[in-house]
Design a protein around this nucleic acid. Structure first.
Lengths: 348, 348
DNA sequence: TATTTTTGTGCAAACGATTGCATTTTCTGA
DNA sequence: TCAGAAAATGCAATCGTTTGCACAAAAATA
């Protein structure tokens, strides 16, 4: 015992206890200690309890680096996300965390802040950290995919979620954007709206295109003429502040706004009300995501639930299955999370 | 070259390229390769460029496990957070991420979901992952601190942020809750409010107590009698749904609500308006946090800005400084982030 | 030309854990 | 009493990297 404790007084800096320390203290070999802790049948019951008790008492924890060096696995998964401060993405992250925990995987997060360069850097960071799998929702400004290809080339399972990259062949989990938009716009039309504006996002994003297509097809189905003017890029509060007044000032005022996210939808409602126009009597507003805010504003927001938590959990499940070899499909696995229209008070 | 590439055809499973591979391919020793890459003066310029070019071409990346094993450092910091899906906490996380990146540290996140058991598990997870530092905001249900003590005992820098644990002696970064509450309530009083209700949180949280004390002192200062009935625990939408109507039904109706967070404040405004009472003319409402929602609801919410991003960055800076030995104070380092009252439309 | 110095490389140990194989000890049965 | 089997333990290599030291070859000096 004295021998073991001596490592403390010698260095004065507490170090983690190792197998070697235990071996020395108990006058055993490192191998015997190792086998005792892993309950190997070769070891006598007496030695086992001796070692196990000692290890527990001294809070022995296997060194993750040594383990990683041997097995090349550290139970860590990297996530690249555009922005954490975002109801949808934080929900996704929460779902991932929840699912990862079930298999004792850790999550390393990186933010791209919607910036290509930061996204590339994040990729390098995760590769350097030797993660076993990577989950990505690409930034709005990403048009080049080499960094993602490098992940694949390194043989590390890669799964895109929500914002996928069409330029690269790998697993993906997306939301049913087209159907969600289609259903929402059909609902608006069903309530009598005819001049429906789509406040969308950059067409670099597949999700934005899909929602636009759902919007267009819904109009088409009901014989409403599609007007390019009525689908501007308007996915931030700043843009909304400039763009919405232009529509409200038109002599043929819109009777509905279908917004690409709930923040824009909420802000939209504010601006309409401030212009002295009623929601939903004069203008209906529908959002996309179903964030907390939807229930807090007045009138409560009709919106399309994206099931972020479920999406995150599904994506995480997929990488883990790839890592464990439980998902063996040769081609791309593509999962779709169903959206759900939540009708509240902001639409007639 | 042929020798090197052979590791591929042999195993058919792409493996990361190692120093040994490079050494074999270039007919050098591992040490020479290692020194070439670290630009050691002993190595001849010719050999250096040879090795460096080869390494770059084959995208050599040092093995993080081997490095960690030698240096006992993997540039990773663990964060334990009650809930990611929360404007304040996600802001904090974002600030941490931002600051960590400057020093090339990675972040592993764990959620406690406000649950003691999960918090303990998260602690074990982070210790097992061999993180170099840990940042914690404790859960609402935590009353026992042994798990935190274990972190300290392991000689791993620990910093509490926002929700600190008074039972443990370690660095902390908090928000100026007392002053924030005091200022906000003084503002309400200054606008003529006299019957001010404080919708608070469990007194297990130091932040809740501090805000309550700020509230009480503001009342005291202006000679308003403090009524225990007027400071219920009400920090969730569910509680608010039950509790707020009770106050609105009183014959002596409150003329202001000071809420412990913006969600409750927003919901409060909704309920007041639905009861046919005007905000802020009849009742003023003030929140705490300054989340996005504050600008989106109608009327826009007066609230106390907590500067979450700054808080996160500060806390991260502090652990990193502790890790690097740049913060050498023997006792507790305690940083306070100043709050700021943002006056909008929900208060007279 | 002989000796020292400089320059460039390689060997081997170390970090902490696992594991095939060798070795020692104990037990069994004739 | 002793061979042989069974049980318990130890040795040593391995994972990928770094680094003190030894050593060789080349260059400088005497």
């Amino acid at each position: 015992m004295i021998i073991f404790e001596s490592f403390l007084t010698n260095t004065m800096k507490k170090r983690q206890i190792t197998l070697k320390d235990i071996a020395k203290a108990l006058d055993l070999s490192v191998s015997t200690v190792s086998r005792s802790l892993s309950d190997h049948p070769d070891i006598s019951p007496g030695t086992k309890v001796l070692v196990q008790r000692f290890a527990k008492e001294h809070k022995y924890k296997p060194n993750a680096f040594a383990l990683g060096l041997k097995t090349n696995a550290n139970k860590t998964i990297g996530v690249i996300i555009p922005e954490i401060v975002h109801f949808f993405f934080s929900s996704v992250l929460s779902g991932m965390q929840d699912e990862a925990e079930k298999d004792d995987f850790n999550i390393i997060i990186c933010q791209s802040n919607e910036d290509y360069a930061q996204e590339v850097k994040a990729t390098q960071t995760l590769l350097a950290a030797q993660v076993q799998g990577i989950l990505v929702s690409s930034s709005k400004t990403t048009t080049c995919f080499e960094h993602f290809q490098e992940i694949v080339d390194n043989n590390i399972p890669l799964v895109f979620f929500d914002r996928i990259c069409t330029g690269i062949n790998t697993d993906r989990v997306v939301v049913d954007d087209y159907q969600g938009a289609f259903t929402a716009v059909c609902h608006l039309i069903g309530q009598g709206c005819r001049r429906i504006v789509f406040l969308g996002a950059s067409s670099l994003l597949a999700i934005a295109n899909n929602r636009r297509m759902g919007y267009e097809d819904a109009l088409r189905k009901h014989g409403i003429v599609i007007d390019e003017e009525c689908m501007p890029v308007c996915d931030t509060i700043e843009l909304a502040r400039r763009i919405i007044p232009l529509f409200l000032a038109k002599e043929q005022r819109p009777d509905a706004f279908f917004c690409v996210n709930d923040e824009v939808a909420s802000f939209c409602i504010r601006m309409i009300k401030q212009a002295g126009i009623r929601v939903p009597e004069d203008i209906s507003v529908c959002g996309f995501t179903n964030s907390q805010i939807a229930e807090l504003i007045d009138p409560a927001l009709t919106t399309v639930d994206q099931h972020g938590f479920e999406l995150g959990a599904t994506a995480m499940r997929l990488v883990i299955d790839r890592i464990n070899g439980e998902e063996t499909k040769d081609g791309i696995v593509s999962r779709v999370i169903k959206t759900k229209l939540i009708i509240r008070e902001s639409t007639r």
